[in-house]
Design a binder for these strands. Sequence first.
DNA 1: AATGAATGAGCCTTCATTCAT
DNA 2: AATGAATGAAGGCTCATTCAT
Lengths: 232, 232, 232, 232
Amino acid sequence: MNDYSFIVGGRAIAKERDDAKHVAILRAAVEVMSQYGYHGAQISRIARAAGVADGTVYLYFKNKEDILVSILRMAIGRVVQECSRQLAACQTTDDKLAALIRVYFADLGDNPALAMVTQVYLRQVDANIRREIGDIMKPFYSVVDELIVAGMQEGKFRSKMDRRIARRMIFGTMDETVTAWVLTGSKYSLVSQVDDVVDVLLHGLVAVNAEENAMSEGSLSHEDSSTHETDV
Amino acid sequence: MNDYSFIVGGRAIAKERDDAKHVAILRAAVEVMSQYGYHGAQISRIARAAGVADGTVYLYFKNKEDILVSILRMAIGRVVQECSRQLAACQTTDDKLAALIRVYFADLGDNPALAMVTQVYLRQVDANIRREIGDIMKPFYSVVDELIVAGMQEGKFRSKMDRRIARRMIFGTMDETVTAWVLTGSKYSLVSQVDDVVDVLLHGLVAVNAEENAMSEGSLSHEDSSTHETDV
Amino acid sequence: MNDYSFIVGGRAIAKERDDAKHVAILRAAVEVMSQYGYHGAQISRIARAAGVADGTVYLYFKNKEDILVSILRMAIGRVVQECSRQLAACQTTDDKLAALIRVYFADLGDNPALAMVTQVYLRQVDANIRREIGDIMKPFYSVVDELIVAGMQEGKFRSKMDRRIARRMIFGTMDETVTAWVLTGSKYSLVSQVDDVVDVLLHGLVAVNAEENAMSEGSLSHEDSSTHETDV
Amino acid sequence: MNDYSFIVGGRAIAKERDDAKHVAILRAAVEVMSQYGYHGAQISRIARAAGVADGTVYLYFKNKEDILVSILRMAIGRVVQECSRQLAACQTTDDKLAALIRVYFADLGDNPALAMVTQVYLRQVDANIRREIGDIMKPFYSVVDELIVAGMQEGKFRSKMDRRIARRMIFGTMDETVTAWVLTGSKYSLVSQVDDVVDVLLHGLVAVNAEENAMSEGSLSHEDSSTHETDV
DNA sequence: AATGAATGAGCCTTCATTCAT
DNA sequence: AATGAATGAAGGCTCATTCAT
């Protein structure tokens, strides 16, 4: 999935030439930024990489931050959509959580450049835009929120748990995992971390008893991922 | 604790006039940055807030980024030091984890401006400085790492768990919690979240059985914190 | 010739708007620098004098020093070109030397502001740029070198003379003459000095015998130039 | 003569500790400037090299330019004084000119760092200080002027020659020679150039006849100096 | 729609000089 | 006399954005 299909997301039919330029600029922005860093990502460089004139960028985007936000919107939009599809096919809440994380990791795992942008550069924007970022993330938050609520209702998840804190643990862990992967050069497989991450989120750090430890061993594969990973 | 004692860390007595200026500039930097944002934190504004001339800033700091890094160094240094003290007094690994998170939340909870800088603005720096940030964070990482290893060795923590992923869950959850608190205006008590956060980290999302749920209810207080918190 | 035709050199027709701005900035730089001195020649002042924005200067020149170097390049380029033309029409080596000095004095004599820049301000640049200045001057050096060699080969110039020293005498004398003229306010005619300078370069200080002195009297006119000149 | 005796010049007895600091600062200024260049010659660096505090420099010199001017004043003062001594011992005007140039070349030849300062860095000062430099040079100019007048009166030098132009030729040639020597790294002997320079100044470029050329051959040594010299 | 030349606001940093001690 | 910490003015350069063509 290095074809940037993530950018146009779920739109079934590309509109026109317009859309082609729109996408080209977003593609270029991701590439330029992941290559040259935040400060090296001048509009003129993005425009050149996209094969358009500087001014043309402003026909498609309000300003530079709008490009960054659009990148996130597209990426998250696509993840959310893919989540809806995959989660519907899951039977248990456990599976749904695993599916959610797998979709997220798979998406970013296939696009290190995009991951670099969302995990690092997007955080360098001004405070006023963080609000907008929050709005973009909301649908994704909702998916998780609904998942947590469902889990609690069906008795699977702990009933007295603070939903917000649970959600922050999920996002915080995902975020930290992806950021560590990105900052160490995207050298190992991000998806390979899914099972371990899900396991620790579901069961926490504490070993309830020896049997539980023994039972969970089979499905885990820490050793594999460990060998590929540089410690951060 | 708005007296910025966090800045000089554990030093009982400020050395000289030197140190006073050093601290004054760091204080000013934290205040100005939390108020005006990263891009609004011009050296001249920081200098004015510190009551010194622009040039004086450069007698104490190499450049603007050095100020940012110094803020983190002081803050983390103080947290690490406080952790060593508090963790030594803890009997169980559970308590140690709780103490660690409590120290961290208490420190930042008392200094919303500092939290704003570490959680938001510090991430806006250039790639080259991120390495330095990593070095500063290492001692803190180590504390957590040792805690995890100890927990696993004494059979308290799950033995087959990936240590790195466990650490990322802890940090990711803490980070997400503090960031959410900061971005919603630091309106509720950050320390009040400690028990819930620790609980969810230790036991995960899954309810093992009805009894466990019932047992954990007593020590938790989601309702209290919930009422103060705006959802993010 | 205060029309700065020296700047575009031999180009018969200015290319485009591009060239017009390029020339306008060089013109402005010469004027501003000769008027306000090197340290008073801020980019913003040059830009204002050229009728462009500060940033526009950097569309045409790499940096401030590049402007200085460009001024020299244009000026010297024009002199060298004019020299080639005039020297070809000369019969004797004496005449060629006279023509060379006349072209140089005429050019700078018509542009006191330019002379001020090349004789005074250009020498205030950094060591690294002196090399570039040397490269620019080389063609001019070569013209003189060839002239000296030709004179020696045809037996006109003293055969055992050190060519380098001869060249330094020629340049040193020209340079000192122009600098003295510039620093005293360009009040007298620089070209009027040509014959005397050439005479002293060709025959030196020593009177060979009474007859030679008597013979040379007719062609010289020290009294005229003397009356206009303030001693330096 | 690398002992900086040039700095105190002819003063028979150094005044006190005062004078020692005065000299130390001038020494340091010459060293620092020749080593680090004009822009690298900050007062603080000069002070450190002189072993005094920054502020102390201002007890001995009005400002930074005053240091530069003082360096020139000392150097020229010493040359002028040495000239008076040596020229008195000369019989002919020719010899006096040779002595003058020899004193100048010997002095700078023994102090490449000083030569670098006078030939290169001193010219980077502002316009207002050039006047002061002119004043300092006047005694040296006078020596040459008197020499020229004497030569003309005794019939040795050409009677109708423009004195000012003659003087500029002498200074221009000396200056160009020293500058070329300095900028090529002071690799050859500057004094070794004296005879050739004097010869070309006295007799000019033109060969009067074959006999003259033959006669002058014996006293010249172009080949020697040529081998040591890199062309500029 | 597309261009790209032009704009100009904005800021970090240096360093000669001062002055309280 | 000596110190050296403190000062603060000053400017080259970048780059997001505009707009005439």
